[in-house]
């Protein structure tokens, strides 16, 4: 497991995200067409060099939309993203190109993100070729990369369909790392894999971070995986960050009732521990972002909700005295 954030407390961020928002148009012909659906609303965080920020939440919470905006696969409708101090929110695709090599993405479905007609060599070489490297340098680097992610040189001439899911994800990781990026956004990179393979890929990502110093934004719904790999964690609910802070704070002593409920809902793989545990069972389903509740959007499911929660949306504020965690709750746990 990762230890404390290597850059905790240091001011210079690799990535600065401020008040990021994404509003999709509402369904055609509906009254909400004009208002739109706020998939992401006022999301702010920093990512420091060499650290992992985990982004967790349930389906529809906006974590994947956020990840896509960080690498500009989606253009935000509000807020800004700065990479190494440079605002990239409205940079044109041409000026974005040199940045692409420093900012990469890994996807959930390795097969869907690999071109089925290209060999592994072609897939991994593509980003290097785009940088205009010599054929000889590319050959050498591609060989180094497959070794780095635990594949063999004979795999280079094969096609994606000849690999298992875990191996295909290794190819996706090799491609993402080819240009030695400083930041990789990984969107559910292990959730499509068998349990026994997930640990291999998590271990690989951790080793690559130690060896290359790459920072990750690790997006997942699996709270145990995120706890394992992250230095800091942001919990999202209905498009907003409800809690963010050092992993030990968020997991060890969660301040937001949603974080508490989420953690208590994850079954432990041990019957005795599972029976002994105090569980907070939430009522109902996560609401639709098309029709968010008033005030704190969690209030209809919150066991602690009071009148204020129904009317006033809470802001993210510090709840740990040493500044290691913030929560958006009127009545946070202390």
């Amino acid at each position: 497991m990762s230890t404390a954030s290597p850059h905790a407390g240091r001011p210079e961020a690799l990535l600065e995200v401020r008040d990021l928002g994404m509003t999709f148009p509402g369904p055609r012909g509906s009254l909400r067409r004009r208002a739109g659906i706020r998939a992401v609303d006022g999301v702010s965080f920093d990512v420091h060099p060499g650290e992992t920020l985990g982004l967790v939440g349930e389906s529809g919470c906006g974590k994947s939309t956020t990840g896509r905006m960080l690498v500009r696969l989606l253009d935000p409708t509000a807020g800004r993203v700065a990479f190494r101090g440079q605002d990239i929110t409205r940079t044109g695709q041409r000026e974005l190109r040199p940045l692409r090599s420093r900012l990469q993405m890994i996807f959930q479905d390795p097969f869907a993100s690999l071109n089925p007609r290209q060999t592994v060599r072609q897939i991994i070489a593509a980003p290097l070729r785009a940088q205009g490297e010599s054929a000889q340098a590319i050959r050498r680097e591609v060989r180094d990369l497959v070794g780095l992610v635990g594949l063999a040189p004979e795999h280079l001439e094969r096609y994606p369909h000849q690999f298992s899911g875990g191996q295909a994800q290794r190819i996706g990781i090799a491609r993402a790392l080819a240009t030695r990026p400083e930041l990789v956004v990984a969107d559910e990179p292990v959730s499509a894999l068998d349990v026994s393979i997930q640990a291999q890929i998590v271990g690989l990502l951790e080793r690559l971070q130690r060896e290359l110093g790459v920072a990750y934004v690790f997006i997942a719904h699996d709270l145990a995986v995120v706890r394992h790999i992250s230095h800091r964690v942001a919990v999202m609910y209905l498009g907003r960050i409800v809690e963010i802070g050092e992993r030990q704070q968020v997991y060890g002593n969660p301040a937001h009732p949603y974080t508490r409920a989420l953690l208590s809902a994850v079954p432990l793989p041990e019957p005795a521990a599972e029976r002994a545990r105090e569980r907070i069972v939430l009522l109902g389903d996560p609401p639709s972002p098309a029709d968010p509740p008033s005030g704190c959007t969690f209030h209809p499911r919150c066991p602690k909700a009071r009148e204020l929660c129904r009317t006033e949306p809470p802001l993210l504020r510090l709840t740990a005295p040493d500044g290691t965690r913030q929560a958006a709750c009127h009545f946070p746990e202390v």
Partner: peptide
């Protein structure tokens, strides 16, 4: 399988022990 599973109640810093290969 049990060793390779990340657990919410695992001690801090405990590594995951992956099973090599694929099913």
């Amino acid at each position: 399988l049990l060793d390779s599973l990340p657990r919410l109640d695992a001690p801090e810093g405990e590594p995951l022990r992956a099973i090599p290969g694929s099913p």
